[in-house]
Design a protein around this nucleic acid. Structure first.
Lengths: 356, 356
DNA sequence: GGGGCGAGTCGAATCGATTCGATCGAACCG
DNA sequence: CGGTTCGATCGAATCGATTCGACTCGCCCC
């Protein structure tokens, strides 16, 4: 009888398999991992024993402990999932991340800032972490990650020592877009920005709010616009969605004097603004020009073709993924910085003649 | 000097902290976990020692091994992320999952079937797993999970012993939708289905393909339609997207005789079909009725309001998440089955008079 | 024939915590 | 005042594998 192998109730362990196969645990381990030399006959015997006992291979928990690696990389997004995934640009980026990680056999742990309530996500068993679109205070978790020796990559975030950055040219790109509007002859230009803090509520863009916010991407894009239109007013959207853009657009178009152009910080917001214009009976681009950001083709823009700043979101994600891989391998990655391109569509045009 | 505490190069361990604080490892552990009685002064001393050493708390890997739990639940999707997330219905479902898991402090590991190439995802350190939209062969991974004692929940999948099901009434719901079309007077009805296998290519719906496919949701919805229109022809879309729907729609509308109504298996596909109709100069619903499935409001449908089967995707996801939680707690969850509701919009109408 | 090498295997230490049972006082109660 | 209980702490076993160094053969080559 294989008394030793089956006397305990729990799941079979490597030791049990080894015992049944008549080899030591070390050899059995080698047989599974493939590292080190093992005679074919022995390996076969071990595998057979595993089959007999219903052993599914080494326990991942034990492996993680021993190896110090779990094969998991966390991706921290500030929003609820449904919010984060509402914008296709985030999905594109995530896809890039997943692509780079998957190529190395790493998988992707979705972590959302559950506010202060939930469990601290820095205690998840992961090898590295990618911070994306982080507006909130991250000092505490970042410190925790660093103490754990977990490599950190941050996409479009403020510089932090020990955090590897993956950047997008948010500010200069927006400047180029704004320049395009100025070249067309616009001067009454308004902004529809992404959220400034975790507020989730529409509000006017004020210098105060701006000053105390840490929403890096939003701020950079505002600054880029300000370089061309220093006193542009604006509305802070509740989130990146068509509805939020519609809401913001309504607010803007009710103002006097009405802006002749809107710089929206995402394509979804831009589409919302276009909807608001249609609603108000204003022609786009005849009576209102609209500039977006991102350049992921989204549904519902037709018959327009959005003028927008096309960012290489997938590449950006992929770069972040690869950076983690490099850091995990103990190498220093190449700093990555991506450039957006102004794609001129049919939603921008010179302002109506009477207007400037 | 705190020689013992700092003599090793690596990160500080609980033992080092305990040593510095002058207590045993067991007590230090208690101080961190909060389980068991510890004098306030002692806890304070341990925490101070941790601070001094830069100790970020117990190592998650070690915790996982000891406790046999990692706090991670895997979600297996068959597609690439970008494909899976293209359809808002999946996002809604994922949001429900994340919601239910987050409430229990669990986090969500995204696993995609990387084909046969990538690493086997069943070796990730997770406590439970949710299978979603699984068409491919899953027997091997399911067996592996079961051998590991990992609870499995499957959303809209074939029954498998030991796998807890979360169901949607795909077949009867589609029957109700088809009935609606018949009631309007349609008889030349065509199908645009979700993918049948991992083929990612448009193709005609044939009985063979149908018979050998394991794409549960797709098959069930086809059967539901067949109960009303037994000989309906159809096209299998490459994926759930507007483009794929457009592609399928073009193929269908080129046929003679042209169908007077299309049953699309997702709203995105339905929208694509509407686009194809517009393209062909056919009025919707005057010359072509279109029925969708899902009911997540998507952009670009305007000015139509899609007639569709509204499924409670978030609840479905939440139920799956909760089922995992229950199974992890050793309880037997209530079987969950969800019902879709026919929402009649403006994309279905009686066929043009000369047509039936 | 002896030295050396490499393939194959094994023992034992190790990864870093958790937790059960035991121990030791101090407080409490009749 | 003795026995009981509770709070606080500690030792030691345990979770399940990986891996380094050592050991044993058998073979090759000079």
């Amino acid at each position: 009888m294989d008394a030793e192998a089956t006397e305990h109730a729990g799941r079979p362990t490597l030791a049990a398999v080894a015992a049944l196969a008549g080899v030591s645990a070390s050899t059995a381990s080698l047989a599974f991992s493939g590292a080190g030399p093992v005679a074919d006959a022995t390996r076969e015997r071990v595998l057979a024993a595993a089959r007999e006992l219903g052993y599914a291979g080494p326990d991942p928990f034990a492996q993680s402990l021993r190896r110090g690696r779990s094969g998991i990389v966390g991706v921290v997004m500030e929003d609820r999932l449904s919010d984060a995934f509402r914008d296709p640009i985030n999905i594109a980026m995530l896809d890039g991340i997943a692509d780079a990680l998957g190529a190395e056999g790493l998988s992707l742990l979705l972590l959302t800032e559950t506010g202060e309530s939930g469990t601290d996500y820095s205690l998840a068993p992961m090898d590295g972490v990618i911070l994306v679109g982080c507006s909130r205070e991250l000092d505490a978790p970042v410190t925790a990650f660093q103490q754990r020796g977990i490599p950190i990559v941050a996409i479009e975030a403020e510089r932090m020592p020990g955090v590897f950055p993956v950047d997008l040219d948010n500010r200069p790109a927006t400047t180029r877009g704004a320049q395009h509007l100025r070249d067309l002859g616009h001067s009454r230009v308004a902004l529809v920005t992404l959220p400034l803090e975790g507020s989730r509520e529409r509000g006017d863009l004020s210098l105060e709010r701006e000053a105390e916010s840490r929403a890096h991407t939003t701020i950079e894009r505002i600054r880029g616009a300000r370089e061309v239109f220093p006193w542009a007013a604006g509305v802070v959207a509740a989130e990146s969605s068509v509805d939020a853009g519609l809401d913001a657009g309504r607010a803007l178009l009710a103002r006097h004097p009405r802006p002749t152009a809107v710089i929206a910080q995402s394509d979804l917001l831009a589409l919302g603004v276009i909807r608001a214009a249609e609603e108000a009976g204003l022609a786009v681009p005849g009576e209102l020009s609209v500039l977006g950001f991102d350049g992921a083709r989204i549904e519902g823009v037709a018959p327009h073709e959005l003028t927008t700043l096309v960012q290489p979101a997938v590449d950006k994600g992929r770069a972040a993924g690869r950076a983690v891989v490099e850091l995990l391998a103990g190498r220093q990655p190449e700093p990555a910085s991506f450039t957006s391109e102004l794609r001129i569509g049919t939603t921008t045009a010179p302002p109506a003649s009477g207007e400037h």
